[in-house]
Nucleic acid binder design. Structure first.
Lengths: 335, 335
DNA sequence: ATTTCAAATGTAATCGATTACAGTAAATTC
DNA sequence: GAATTTACTGTAATCGATTACATTTGAAAT
């Protein structure tokens, strides 16, 4: 291993001078700078990042906890995180938790042991183990999309799920639909509650029902969409419009609806949530709500880094704008 | 910050004893162990990972270079990498390069500066900057799917792209197709050459043409599929079967074919490559080649870690099995 | 030529944990 | 009871870089 000592000997200077040449060259004479750089080059020297980090006490890394790597929506968020992190000189440690709390604890522990400086949570759980909860009290942490449960409030970057759901509901009500159903995602989440509340609020204003037997699903997956439609079509009354709580669910739902010989949107309108890439290229292209996933990721890093730097927090909650994307999976209610 | 010194004072022992209690408890009396553990708990102590790492010279991290985070296929590979890495006690640093060589250099540099112990490259380029090439000579590195360019041969985990393409070609030839086209991915890659060669070999055996004007595309994206179909349909002869070099391309292609009022597979058969999740739920479901992406990721980590541990390498190339998935996007050639 | 001051460089402490080596206490053997 | 071995624990060196402080160098001022 070529270390700073070897370089200093090669250049005939002290290690301090080598370090200064690399970190703050203006403190060093042009002549010695020259000598040192020569030696650095000759030795093929790279400062040992681990060593610098122990000294500074900062790892310049952040952990990102993802419940599910196969969801393309998370990917866009992570893309934004990656980009912003790199710009700010941080690297990203990926933590695929599969929703398993043991894994969450393990990854969250990285921040406690100085392996990372902060944490971005894409799921809704408080990721630290119970015995670490107290230690975790001053840990920089941000949640994206979801909100971290517990008494302490961490900054959130989120969408106005309530308003977005209302927009979708208005869109469908405007088409004259009266028989609604929903295939929801994970029930324990904040998102679930807000989206459902948004839909309910519009339907109530219009005096339209959303009975319990018209709710299906339980996870944010294609399979959940398929299973959801199977259940819904067993009911005595067939819905004419289905709210899917994300695009994956909608993809599964449309697939299954067609399998039953029904048409989208002529027989049943389907709307999704997230606007993942393929949604625009489905048949029919999916009506959905666009979330600025990439920007959410970027913003999360900015907020996290300012927490790490102990800058005062301006807002503890940022709501990013959504956009209703009307495509062809939704249309007028059948007669 | 609670460090080992504080704990040692609390427990009334030396730092060495504290360290031993945590790392090799059998070397410590039950009584002192008790005292120390008590103090550890009381202080809320966690060993500083950075400090341990400087000492050992190992970061227990690996960097993964991904050209494109939005491709769900890469995600499955990364999922496998993540899983295997965690089992082996490594953490994963994510490097989204966007195919930009400056970024590649930067991420690859992490291994040179001890920020990571090894590197997995999902793209085909040699990721180190030219001036670092010599230093990089002994760096543990593995490529997945693609092969890293350059004279030195790094271990590869890949698919038999040649055989897989032949399987697809046979499948289509078996349906009686005679007018073929292909929408290819990035032309600079090994994959491109092998897949094309596989297709060509079958067509030649059957005396069927694949003229240059029937080749389109240039990147692994939905857009490339759309643009490719546009180009192909401008040609005087319309193909009856299109090889798409991945599923994203195929999704774009099918979308665009339908837009032109043509049917898949009645007018044009389309086949893809990768078997990403949504492929099964498209309309029509996509005929494609399944790659064991998850296992490829796992295997890559295993090979990388044994390189890091300087274990002798058994094979420098591992070819994993593919599977032809016949769905409804391919069918008999039209009359 | 001497003094003064700033700039450049070197020495050594430091970050936090690990570990070779040394020292001490307890247990075993004769 | 003395000698020897074994088991624990402590002291201090170490990993590689950074940096406070001390020292040297050289230029400017008198």
């Amino acid at each position: 291993m070529t270390n700073i000592k070897k370089v200093s000997e090669l250049a005939g200077v002290s290690t301090a001078t080598v370090s200064r040449t690399l970190k703050s060259p203006e403190q060093v004479t042009a002549a010695t700078r020259e000598k040192v750089m020569q030696a650095v080059k000759q030795a093929g020297y790279r400062p040992n990042w681990l060593a610098s980090s122990v000294k500074s006490g900062k790892s310049n890394s952040i952990v990102v906890l993802v419940p599910n790597l196969t969801n393309p929506f998370f990917l866009r968020i992570i893309g934004g995180i990656e980009q912003a992190a790199q710009e700010k000189g941080y690297s990203v440690l990926l933590g695929d938790t599969q929703g398993d709390s043991r894994r969450e604890h393990e990854y969250a522990g990285m921040v406690l042991s100085n392996r990372a400086d902060g944490l971005i949570q894409l799921d809704h759980s408080f990721p630290f183990a119970p015995q670490d909860a107290e230690l975790a009290d001053n840990i920089p942490m941000v949640s994206v999309c979801e909100r971290i449960e517990g008494e302490r409030k961490y900054p959130v970057i989120e969408l106005d799920n309530y308003a977005a759901s209302r927009a979708l509901a208005h869109h469908l009500v405007g088409y004259g639909h009266q028989k609604f159903a929903a295939i929801v995602g994970q029930i324990s989440s904040q998102i679930y509650r807000e989206r459902l509340a948004g839909i309910r609020s519009v339907l109530q204003e219009e005096n339209l029902p959303l009975p319990d037997e018209m709710l299906a699903g339980g996870s944010y997956s294609i399979e959940s969409g398929i299973e959801g439609v199977r259940q819904l079509l067993k009911q005595p009354v067939r819905p004419t419009a289905i709210f899917c709580f994300n695009d994956d669910i909608a993809i599964g739902a449309i697939h299954e609806i067609k399998k039953h010989g029904l048409r989208v949107p002529e027989d049943i309108s389907v709307v999704g949530f997230d606007n993942i890439k393929v949604s625009a290229f489905m048949d029919p292209p999916l009506t959905t709500v666009d979330q600025p996933a990439y920007d959410m990721g970027r913003r999360a890093v900015e907020v996290l880094v300012s927490q790490i730097r102990k800058e005062p927090l301006t807002r503890s909650k940022e709501v990013l704008p959504f956009q209703l994307i009307e495509r062809e999976s939704s249309g007028p209610a059948p007669q």
